[in-house]
Computed example of a mutant assay.
Amino acid sequence: MRRVLVLLALPLLLAGCTTVAGGRATPATVVPTTPRVPRPGTGAGPYRSGDCVELPDVTKVSCDRPHEYEVMLSANFAPEVPAAYPPDVKRLARPACHTALPAYLGNPDADASTLEAFTLWPGEQPWGAGERWYACLVTARGGDNKPVKQPGRLAAALAHGLGRFQECRAGEPLKESPVHVVPCGGPHRSEAVPGVLQLGKATDPPIDLNGPLVGKAISHCEQKVIAYLGGRRPGVTSTAILPLPQDWPTGETAAVCWAIADHDVTGPLGHA
């Protein structure tokens, strides 16, 4: 039975930047969370926690073979979900998937990595037949902005820091079109740094981009970038990227901090 795989993008807003200068990088303190990985095989519907999934047919495969997605959790929509198709996945399932990402990966800074959460739900025919499940999947974004096909599991992949999954960009965040994710060990200008700041919950009123949370995020990110660099450094700026108000109810409630060099660098600017 063919199912619909929906890849939900994460639109963000550039909030501001400050210049930092000087210094030598020292290892950042890693504050991982204890991974909260559901017991394998638990959940709802045809895809369960720990399943590995391969495109284009959304087929379950052995995690030992190369695949694009891994199921973090699956559940049923609330009984009162409208029967109309498609369901309002952004509001009804996306918040749970966004919350699952740092818990499953074992690090509150998951939004600073190339590991991203996506949502899968039944196609129109099985939905009409009464299926009401959804699944939260995780994948790694590659340099071509497509999911990376690789063997192995991603559960607890960030428990000891961002490591090889730290997100780096060839240019500046949001100024690239399309986004160009690159390995941090090669030439790049921008690095997402540890210190993702949760600004609230999806059930809170959406962020006011003229309100105090914006200034809080900018100040927070300046300090996180300085800590990441080990001090101030010429030619590097700090930037806070915030969620758009319309995406707040989907669970996009965090500010991500970026260090941006004014020229290409090779290798990480700091330690993640």
Rank of each mutant, 00 (worst) to 15 (best):
D57R: 13
E54C: 05
P79I: 11
T59A: 06
H67G: 05
D64V: 01
H67W: 03
P56L: 06
P87Y: 05
E68K: 03
N76M: 13
P56V: 06
Y69R: 02
Y85L: 15
A83G: 14
R65Q: 10
E68F: 06
E68T: 05
P87I: 06
K60H: 10
E80Q: 14
Y85V: 07
A78G: 11
P79K: 09
T59W: 00
K60T: 08
D64S: 05
A84D: 14
T59N: 05
E68L: 01
P86R: 09
A78I: 08
E54L: 03
Y69M: 03
P87L: 08
P79D: 11
M72K: 06
S74V: 04
S62M: 00
K60L: 06
V81W: 14
N76D: 10
T59F: 02
S74H: 01
P87A: 09
V53P: 01
P82N: 09
P86V: 12
R65W: 08
C63H: 00
Y85P: 10
E70H: 04
F77Q: 10
N76T: 15
P66V: 06
A75R: 04
P82E: 15
L55W: 09
M72I: 13
H67A: 02
H67M: 01
E70M: 03
V81A: 09
M72D: 13
D64Y: 00
Y85M: 15
V53G: 00
E70T: 01
D64L: 00
A83F: 10
E68A: 05
S62K: 00
A83Y: 14
V53A: 02
P82F: 10
T59E: 07
E70Y: 01
V61F: 07
V81K: 13
F77L: 08
M72S: 10
V81Y: 11
P79C: 04
H67P: 04
E54R: 08
V81P: 11
A84R: 15
F77W: 12
E80M: 14
D64N: 02
L55S: 15
C63P: 02
E68N: 03
P79R: 13
A83H: 15
Y85F: 14
